[in-house]
Simulated scan of single mutants.
Amino acid sequence: MPRNTAPDNKDLPHAAPGVDAQDDTAEQGLPTAIVSLKVIEALASAPNGLGVTRLAQLLGMPKARVHRHLSVLREHGYVDQDPDTNQYRVGWQMFLLGRACTSRFDVMSLAKPILEHLRDQVGQTVVISTFSDNEVVVIDLLRGTAPVEISLRPGTRFHHNSVAQGKIALAYGAEKLRRAYLAQALPASTRHTIVDPDRLAAEIELVRRRGWADAPEELYIGINALAAPLMQANGELFGTLAIVGSIHYLPSTPDPAHVQALLEAAVQISAAMGYNGKPTR
């Protein structure tokens, strides 16, 4: 089953190997955990990211120690590194942590009536996800009403090439994300997973043309998903809305009514987040 990446005590940055707590405390007069939080605070204040040198200057720390904190935080999903610029920025795990700590902007609450209506229309599990450079991350979901229930939980991660949500991220996300992902080895989950970069690139173009994605039995045998983009007010991709269910209920040639219901719900949720255009890339 998919692995749940919600952090527990042993996964917190100050407990991970590679950071010398005594050294940092002596140097900075602060516990290692606080130094890690200050690294995250600095990155959160820099939308375009920061390099190691600039971050070390801002924090008044040696570059080597900043790099060690960044390495551990990146390993656990708290920061990401841009493959083109090597700049660091806050990662998807911070998104999930922030979602758990605040209710100021909770897309599930904002979209709940729309999600419930979609779930009732299609009878399947409805999932909202965000994404990182290499993976889709489940934010939350509504269980379906079909006899066969798909087990998911917030924090579950999937490779982009194995799920419909990932194809949306590649189709509507930044060009550099798409280039970097297509340049690496593509992992296989089943014999149906797309692992050829040229074929995946063609699939991405198809997704852009029709505005939605599917992935019949590409993650698990017997499971399919339909996904559509969720756009933010600034025109950037927020994440994805997906219907997930048994291949019996979501066949490889999907019901046009299911596709239409999904697209309408995605447009409504995007509008609720302030977006009033048409998703394009």
Rank of each mutant, 00 (worst) to 15 (best):
M1N: 07
P2L: 11
R3Q: 13
T5I: 07
A6Q: 13
N9M: 09
K10Y: 11
P13H: 13
P13V: 13
P13A: 14
P13Q: 04
H14Y: 09
D23R: 11
L30V: 12
P31N: 07
V35A: 10
V35E: 03
S36G: 15
L37P: 00
K38R: 12
L43R: 00
V52P: 01
T53A: 07
T53I: 04
R54E: 15
R54G: 03
L55S: 02
L55A: 01
L55F: 03
L59D: 08
K63D: 11
V66L: 02
H67I: 06
H69G: 14
R74M: 13
H76C: 05
Y78G: 00
Y78H: 09
D80W: 02
P83N: 04
D84Q: 12
Y88I: 00
V90Y: 02
G91F: 02
Q93D: 04
L97C: 02
C101I: 09
D106G: 06
V107A: 05
I114E: 08
Q121S: 08
V122R: 06
Q124K: 12
T125W: 00
T125E: 02
V126N: 00
I128D: 00
T130E: 01
S132Q: 01
E135M: 08
V136K: 00
V136N: 04
V138E: 01
L141M: 13
L142M: 13
E149T: 14
S151N: 08
G155V: 02
G155L: 02
R157S: 10
H160W: 03
S162C: 12
S162L: 06
Q165P: 01
A169D: 04
A169M: 10
L170M: 08
L177T: 14
R178I: 07
R179Y: 03
A180T: 12
Y181H: 06
Q184K: 15
Q184I: 13
A188G: 03
A188F: 04
A188Y: 03
I194D: 04
V195Y: 01
D196R: 01
P197M: 10
A201G: 11
A201N: 15
A202F: 05
E203G: 10
I204S: 11
E205C: 06
V207W: 07
W212A: 09
A213K: 06
P216I: 11
L219F: 09
I221K: 08
A228M: 04
L230T: 01
A233V: 10
N234L: 06
G239I: 02
A242R: 10
V244H: 00
I247W: 01
Y249C: 05
T253R: 08
P254W: 09
P254E: 09
D255T: 09
Q260H: 08
A261R: 05
L263Q: 12
A265C: 02
A266H: 12
V267S: 11
V267D: 11
G274Y: 12
Y275A: 09
N276A: 13
G277E: 14
G277T: 14
G277V: 14
R281Q: 09
